[in-house]
Design a protein around this nucleic acid. Sequence first.
DNA 1: CATTGTGAACTCATTCACAGCG
DNA 2: CGCTGTGAATGAGTTCACAATG
Lengths: 213, 213
Amino acid sequence: MNNISKIPKATITRLSLYLRQLELLEFDGYRMVSSGKMAWLCQVNPAQVRKDLGYFGEFGIRGVGYDVIDLQEEIKKILAINREWNVGIVGLGNLGLALIDYQNFQARGFYFVAAFDSDPLKIGREIVSGLKVFDFRELRNIVKELNIDIGIITTPASAAQKIADSFFQADVTAILNFSSAQIHAPGHCIVENIDFTVKLDILTYKLKNVIGI
Amino acid sequence: MNNISKIPKATITRLSLYLRQLELLEFDGYRMVSSGKMAWLCQVNPAQVRKDLGYFGEFGIRGVGYDVIDLQEEIKKILAINREWNVGIVGLGNLGLALIDYQNFQARGFYFVAAFDSDPLKIGREIVSGLKVFDFRELRNIVKELNIDIGIITTPASAAQKIADSFFQADVTAILNFSSAQIHAPGHCIVENIDFTVKLDILTYKLKNVIGI
DNA sequence: CATTGTGAACTCATTCACAGCG
DNA sequence: CGCTGTGAATGAGTTCACAATG
């Protein structure tokens, strides 16, 4: 157990989903939940829920289930979201601004501490209270100064690699990439991609091939 | 070959990535590309590229590679994006507006033909030329009238299932869900989720466990 | 002769089935 | 007794290795 390299990536994704369902269950007044109920809520197999949790410890009570509140804490520890993280965002188009305003981030301890753009009209402004727009070329200094842990890229694809490289040089080793570029990163760095058109392509593929429109 | 049920979902995702790299290669003046080069660009194994394409036909020339332009057409056919699709969006917060404005969608033949919200201040307005905001309760009629193929949900999680159900009742069988809700759909319907916080959770998990901050 | 296309081998992930236990 | 925890079985997806070929 706890041989981290053997944990499927999909398990981490599901843990995040479990956490959200647990929050809803708590809100609805539940104290305990079984793997069967969690599985139904998350649309997975009950054994999958138990196995996913089993990679990290024994959190349940046999014959009963899991404590809705305790399990949230355990998952937060596993995902390392039982702390705050400082986020810097590059690219202040509509998407960038929408993300800055996205309530779920603050609620979960992800704080935007700096924004970057190359547009002189935007640089120097304060988007929301406490969040200033810096020239992209200052990225390295600001990263150090404000202790940025995670970089978010919402620029056009053509600029994405250069920005990612700046983050890597500034020792930001984790990037969330909303551009459609494939980012090449050094071995010790992590990039997660969120690509809207890929998801739409999957939908249309299935519409044609599974449903057959 | 072409036993569609046996094609990994990850293959479809990668086809979409291959397509984007092919567009860039064409722009850069390339006429042919090998599986090795594509693999490097997309950060996968060369055999993976060939196998992915092999599910759908023989598109390459042995000893040479793939025609950059022809292969784009083939992939577009496979993904069913060699046509236009009508999209309806529900939820006109910052994210919804950002998506409507997102250039990559129109460029790829995804057209927003209707927007829905429950806010009386927004209903009746025309967000951009040709895109009117309707009351969410009119969804079923408008879907028929404007031939909506795909529904996009960018509302808070609490409203998502109800909206999805409305889409399903109106025979919209494909949904792109940006809310954090797990949507329960009838068997013949398709839901793809885009969940920002899940991706951030994956980043922090890896920061802690792989890199060890 | 470089590169594709693909069966076979392998690796990784999910599900089963039941022992273990509160 | 019911549900968890987990080794074993199954299934899915990736990579290898090489025959096929333009």
